[in-house]
Design a protein around this nucleic acid. Structure first.
Lengths: 208, 208, 208, 208
DNA sequence: GATGAATGAGCATTCATTCAT
DNA sequence: CATGAATGAATGCTCATTCAT
């Protein structure tokens, strides 16, 4: 197992700037090309930093990617957390829809980066931060769900929750990565909320 | 767009053997390591064939992978087609469960190969055969579903069908790739069938 | 030194056809691409012959080229020989012009082939047939020259003849390979004849 | 069209040494074997540099050759420029002879390198530096020629100048590459100057 | 005789990483 | 502390030639 921890954490302002520049240079490069075309020398160049400096901070290429992924996943979770406040005053499935919409919007804004990270780089899926963000996604929807009359009346609650979590996070990616317009994505996201409600509660949110 | 067609189709028995050996050597290598470590020279060596022969049949490395993926995906579809016969005499959601179980079982038998293909090699997802197998997966479950009283009473039928299809095929992969025992996988698969029923029909299969 | 002799000379009609097909397939391929892109497998395919058969007749790739070059150079000499008859009844430098024109015309008709042979394939220049054709070129012009009043009044007759021969044959190639129209080439060729006359005789052909 | 410019121009002394070592290693290898046998790995090895370093400076094999050719051609032009000073105080055709002699001498000193470059590597002929050196050769001889009483009294001055330029530069190569002794080469070069005079002026330099 | 599948040495090139300056 | 020149193992792929059928 590789250790995806930065070699040394930047303390001083100048270091901090280089560290960030490297991470964000990777994001830029990733959004303009594929992971295959991403080289450490390119990253350093784009970051305006020497290759030697890059290796002062990161012991290898994977670590850079891991930290970039961590940042973006954390951003996603934060966005969803913020969406939670308005969501709690909505009807349950509309609250879920609102949260999903905010997540999709965040990913669409950096579609290529998220796509490269989550679909082109095998090890990213295994990263703790990525796993955590999957779990978070379910948590948010669960918080809403418990407010509905039915508690999860399913025979294997944990497994069902895991399944819903997997399906939901994958579906969000599919919507965000789909080559379509904003309107279609909006409809898809709302329908996803509805289907999620159906799975979790066992009836349509609009049903008597 | 690259053409993932073999250079030359094997006619004689000797050729056929080499062709197959190359494809299956790739599968073996893929199940024992990562895609990154898969080299054409290794494939040739493992297949007991010279590197020159490999390039007689395949114009590049990607083509080999594409054909391997095609074969495995076709196998998956065939397995599901065979499961359709017994499924049609079962209660709807149990029929779906049966089909999903057969698909999961097929993938589990070659877990590493399917995992490498579908999760480590970006371009495989785009392959026609892979897209087709996703569609097929939904088709099979739909065939069963129409037998239930409710037709898909959802506001955006096409989009909902697309969403269900994405969620279902991703969930199957998650179950097959999950590090767990057969029993757990069996429960997960049955629950997946139940959740799919809930999404499509709008109530629990066991509900009045 | 390599032996550029065909392995076995074709006796029967069928062999003769294959042998010729191989040579002419090379010419075709050469006129549609560069020497670098010319492979024996391509030649065999274009000739409608198996690669095994190709190696029945020619022991290696170079031999094929050598024989093709021989043929074309012989053709060139023949063309010039035929031009000699009308040339002998013209005024000396116009006779030379006529001969040069016929040579240029022959090369232009297969520009790419002659260009590939004489400018892209190093060893072709060393071939006896090619050397012979250079010599022939001078011979033809000499035959005309002796008819003029001045015999070669130069201090080192042999060396001067060699120099003129080299310059003349190179100039013909330059004219034939130049990217220009037929009219310009015609003027260039006639001027070449004039310059040759000046070199050989020591005055302008039109001078009193 | 390919860009035959070095990737990165050497700034520091260490770089400069590597850069030069690579170019000169190519020259050495070229003079000891054929172009076909010239590989980048060999060049790097002979230069005492890693293959990676070679590709730091040159984006491909052709670029190395192009720069070597440029250097040698520039050297040739410089030599001729230096020969121009003494030449201007000689009688016209002897001045030309002097210039040609200096050019031949320069090429003979590295016969194999010049031969490989100009006769074995097709694309070298097209290089700007090579074309320029051809033009330069004619320029030098023209400068002398105008001093003679006759201006180029030929019907198509431009075409005649082009023809003479082609013939002259080719003839120089033929003399330099010919397998002979220095004395013979000296005679040939002087005779070449005489023939050039005859072409350009229309009479023998020694004629009344 | 003819075939064409098979060979494999060898090539140009890349890129993560190191370490002398 | 930062730099960037240097490294070199490793990769995908080509093609003249052979030889079992």
């Amino acid at each position: 197992m590789i250790d995806f921890t930065p070699k040394k954490l930047p303390k001083q302002a100048r270091s901090r700037a280089s560290f960030d520049a490297i991470i964000e240079a990777s994001a830029q490069l990733l959004s303009g090309g594929t992971y295959e075309a991403l080289t450490t020398n390119h990253i350093a160049q784009r970051a305006g930093v020497s290759i030697g400096t890059l290796y002062e901070f990161f012991s290898n290429k994977e670590t850079i990617i891991a930290i970039l992924a961590e940042r973006r996943m954390q951003a996603l979770v934060t966005v969803m957390q913020n969406a939670l406040i308005p969501a709690s005053s909505m009807r349950p499935w509309e609250g879920v829809a609102h949260i999903l919409e905010s997540a999709v919007a965040t990913m669409v804004a950096e579609r290529d980066v998220y796509h490269a990270l989550l679909r082109q780089i095998p090890f990213v899926r295994q990263l703790p931060a990525v796993r955590a963000s999957r779990a978070a996604m379910t948590d948010f929807t669960q918080m809403i769900r418990v407010r509905s009359a039915d508690v999860l009346n399913l025979p294997a609650p944990e497994m069902d929750a895991w399944l819903i979590s997997q399906m939901l996070s994958n579906a969000i990616l599919e919507i965000a990565f789909r080559n379509t317009d904003a309107a279609t994505r909006a409809v898809l996201t709302r329908e996803l909320a509805r289907l999620t409600y159906r799975m979790a509660v066992g009836r349509d949110p609009e049903a008597g």
